[in-house]
């Protein structure tokens, strides 16, 4: 397990180092080092991004939030505008590993790792986030991830930042089901964002409010995080009631394609996914 470890200070140096074959980028290392240890990756050189000061930034613009490549989950959770504007992202990364893992792990590491169970990734799918490469190009997250551990990042480039457009959502929900409560890889995870026509109402009220826009994504049930467009389309103009949830639950069952593994059987995971949408009626606010 011998490799050179380098800590460039500037993006220019970083880019120069990347041209060598057998080099791997590392931020927190919470994915990379696990893979090195089990021999899945045999790096000749590991290049840390952590000393590159221009990658360590959080920019709260009027229309978007820009998250630099070395921002850790803990740093992000402490950033006030996050809870205000992107509570779904906050809730998702709050479930990542443990405090120690969140202190090391980065959001960029989470997306480049491209795991179908990536919690940060799931929130970014819902938020239509974009990925900025070192060559200046910016592409939607769904075009960035193409399979487990596979991305469209060109060789010799790195991810500079993540851009999240600002948008107002009335309802947000994230849940991950695992056998344990922490340090767990999910059996399945789900998140949704809902905009209501004329605002939300509480469970007890009755009224004519309907869904204006709906986004839903699942993790751990397909090779990548999955947005269910058919459900999203179907939801427009509907009320959140038993009948609605029942219909989308049936659609979910058809859309997800989990596999059998140590964490659970395909059948359990499929039924679980269908069940999770029932949380919508249990929530206080609806439309």
């Amino acid at each position: 397990m011998d490799f050179t470890f380098i800590t460039p200070d500037t993006e220019k140096e970083l880019k120069a180092q990347l041209s060598d074959r057998g080099s791997f980028l590392m931020a927190g290392g919470t994915d990379l080092l696990v893979k090195v240890r089990i021999g899945k990756i045999k790096p000749r050189k590991v290049i840390s991004t952590l000393k590159v000061s221009t990658l360590h930034f959080l920019e709260d613009k009027t229309d978007e939030l820009v998250i630099g490549a070395t921002i850790t989950h803990s740093e992000l959770m402490k950033f006030k505008p996050l809870t205000r504007d992107f509570p779904i992202l906050h809730d998702a990364i709050f479930t990542i590993g443990s405090a120690q893992i969140r202190n090391r792990g980065t959001l960029v590491g989470n997306i480049v790792n491209a795991s179908p169970a990536g919690d940060g990734l799931l929130a970014l799918y819902l938020l239509n986030a974009k990925v900025e490469f070192s060559d200046g190009s910016i592409i939607p997250i769904e075009e960035f991830v193409i399979g487990p551990g596979q991305t469209t990042l060109p060789a010799g480039e790195y991810v500079r930042a993540i851009h999240i457009p600002k948008d107002k959502w009335d309802i947000h929900y994230f849940e991950k089901v695992g056998q344990r409560n922490s340090m767990t890889i999910s059996v399945a995870s789900v998140g949704w964002l809902i905009k209501c026509k004329n605002g939300v109402m509480f469970s007890s009220e009755r009224g004519g409010r309907t869904i204006e826009e709906f986004r839903i994504a699942y993790g751990s049930v397909a090779p990548t995080v999955l947005r269910l467009r058919d459900v999203e389309e179907f939801a427009k103009g509907k009320h959140i009631d038993e009948e609605f949830v029942h219909s989308i639950s049936e659609m979910v069952k058809k859309d997800v394609h989990p596999i059998d593994d140590v964490r659970g059987s395909a059948e359990y995971r499929k039924t679980l996914c269908a069940n999770l949408v029932y949380r919508m009626i249990e929530e206080e606010v609806k439309c």
């Binding site: 443990s98 344990r180 409560n181 140590v262």
Partner: peptide, 28 residues
């Protein structure tokens, strides 16, 4: 609630590290 040996059909234990073999953590 959590701990068991999962083996493949040849009798090799698959749950051979703390990633796959889950002991309760503080939250549990």
């Amino acid at each position: 609630l959590y701990e068991e040996h999962v083996s493949d059909k040849n009798g090799r234990i698959v749950t051979n590290d703390f990633f796959t073999y889950k002991i309760p953590a503080r939250e549990d």
